[in-house]
């Protein structure tokens, strides 16, 4: 396959060029340009409806973009279902509402995709799943069902489930927004651990402490556009754009 010429030397994990997306006639994403290096950790923030979730959902084709190009791990997203499946195998995702499979045990949640998509043997998949469940510190819950776990535990399972596919990139769509305050920390700890392990991550989140601690770059979006991006210290202390200032004053002010 000749995918190398499209990837600027081939070391971008994700490369989005002039991407536009509409919901019906509503222009949700406008001229998005974003390059993510291998191992880079990006936090995207912005008011609700700014298109930040839609942006990361375009990366694994949960949403379809209409213009521009998205190249993930050297593979360009098109309508080719094979390419979409290839990309989805390389991109793990965690959702706001966890979306665990309630009819399967924690262990089965984690081994399902490795067995059916990666064609792993059941014992191998179990071993990998248990090692990731240990990494997110809940190996003892492996045989329970998602409904028996707290929100924080469920989200950690969701992270382990995505990691079991050994993805090149992890996407987080507001992973702590649906959690009680007591549980946010346990999820963030896992994400920090993941970041320190060198995972390429894009996180839509309003956890600014997390952004300061692990992000290489913070992106602020509004009205479907990338308004401003900078490394975290500069982003928080000296935002350049008025819209960013207003947003930061609203979320940091109280």
């Amino acid at each position: 396959m000749n995918t190398i010429p499209q990837t600027n030397g081939g070391n971008y994990a994700i490369e989005i060029t002039n991407m536009n997306k509409w919901f019906g006639s509503f222009h949700v994403l406008r001229d998005i340009n974003l390059q993510v290096q291998q191992g880079e950790r990006i936090v995207i923030c912005g008011p609700s409806g700014s298109g930040k979730s839609t942006l990361i959902r375009c990366i694994n084709r949960l949403e379809e973009h209409q213009e521009g190009s998205i190249i993930v791990d050297g593979i360009e997203l098109s309508n080719d279902l094979k390419k979409i499946d290839e990309i989805r195998r390389e991109v793990g995702m965690c959702f706001q509402h966890f979306n665990l499979f309630p009819h399967l045990t924690i262990l089965e949640n984690c081994t399902l995709a490795p067995i059916w998509v990666r064609r792993m043997s059941k014992t191998e998949a179990n071993e990998i799943a248990m090692s990731y469940l240990e990494r997110v510190k809940i190996p003892d819950q492996a045989l329970k069902y998602p409904g028996q776990l707290s929100g924080g535990q469920q989200q950690r399972v969701a992270i382990a489930r995505a990691l079991c596919m050994n993805p090149a990139v992890m996407l987080f769509d507001e992973p702590t927004s649906a959690l009680d305050p007591e549980m946010i920390k346990e999820v963030l700890d896992v994400m920090v651990d993941l970041a320190e392990g060198g995972m390429t991550m894009i996180c839509v989140t309003h956890e600014m402490g997390f952004a300061r601690r692990v992000a290489n770059r913070v992106i602020f979006m509004d009205e479907g556009q990338i308004v401003e991006q900078n490394e975290p210290e500069a982003f928080f202390t000296s935002p350049r754009n008025d819209r960013t200032k207003l947003f930061l004053s609203q979320i940091l002010g109280h």
């Binding site: 694994n60 084709r61 949960l62 979306n99 665990l100 009819h103 399902l112 995505a162």
Partner: peptide
């Protein structure tokens, strides 16, 4: 969300239906 989670893991239409959606 169930469809999305299954898709995000790389499960195709039939596997999503047979393993995730129909059992529930």
């Amino acid at each position: 969300g169930q469809y999305e989670a299954a898709n995000a893991l790389g499960l195709g239409y039939w596997r999503t239906m047979l393993l995730i959606i129909l059992p529930q």
